[in-house]
Design a protein around this nucleic acid. Structure first.
Lengths: 150, 150
DNA sequence: CGCGTTATTAATACACGATATCATCAAATC
DNA sequence: GATTTGATGATATCGTGTATTAATAACGCG
């Protein structure tokens, strides 16, 4: 098979020395089309809808692998519940999580490339991505709080 | 009992309208003394070593509560395994996670207070903390990689 | 300082997300 | 096309986190 139609992220998988299997490409496709913040259960269901022959374990293994390659990242919305996986589109992702209603508000632009370059030099690390989360009350919840003192 | 010896974080619990129970204060103490990145299991064990009468569920509830107050935050080191909880000492925390050996390197200084103020204004939110994670290879692993092409 | 109210707890049984295992399979290389 | 080796899928199992409820202790108030 030729490589002409490989997605950039699939290419990264191969470049890192991993086989481009059906299971991995399906999981990657589901996450890419998912629009962010899918739980493992949602991913399992969607993968199964695409190809019922793909097993649970392979989905979890694929998620682990994609995480190690900084293609996706597991995050907690609420504490302790199953994580949601977010794509790190250009290696990074940023959001605000409301600690009252658990709403997630994404935003662009973190201005962290300078800090990343600093860290690479100071700590002798090779960075491939980052995640920035802010916690607090969203607009609705903070309005509510003001009016009800509670 | 007088309030003279309340820790600042315990004070925050009370100010938010929650009772300062033995279970909550014990969990908080364990996390504060833990030096960051304790798993729930480690926290459970240490809490039990301090006071064996405290039940599992109370520990998880305390962790949830402390998370909602942005006093701690669950994070994933490796994908899919049990989370580790980090203190957000002044409302924020920053680290680099090595995607090869899972080592965690903490650093100070993120320069994000300006961005936080911006977001509060633009999104009409009230922020109480943040977490910044970088992913990549640590010094040891990136040296290894260079010498072994692998 | 003790009493009443009410949030919180402890104990247990349970649910369910994630994993270990291993025989089978298929992707990449030549 | 054959070979090598990493990856898969099925299943049994594990272990973290949760629901439930009667009992308890923290806090405010007199």
């Amino acid at each position: 098979m030729s490589n002409t139609s490989l997605s950039p992220r699939a290419q990264r998988l191969r470049d890192a020395g991993h086989k481009l299997t059906n299971a991995r490409l399906t999981v990657l496709g589901v996450v890419e089309r998912g629009g962010g913040h899918l739980t493992s259960t949602e991913i399992l269901n969607r993968v199964n809808a695409v190809d019922a022959r793909i097993g649970r374990a392979s989905v979890f293994r694929a998620l682990d692998l994609l995480t190690r390659l900084s293609i996706i990242r597991p995050t907690y919305i609420d504490s302790s519940i199953t994580p949601t996986y977010v794509l790190l589109p250009d290696g990074h992702h940023h959001h605000v999580i409301c600690t009252h209603c658990n709403r997630v508000i994404e935003f662009e632009d973190c201005g962290l490339s300078k800090l990343a370059a600093d860290l690479e030099r100071r700590l002798h690390v090779q960075l491939s991505g980052h995640l920035l989360e802010f916690y607090g009350l969203c607009d609705r919840c903070s309005a509510q709080e003001r009016s009800a003192f509670n």
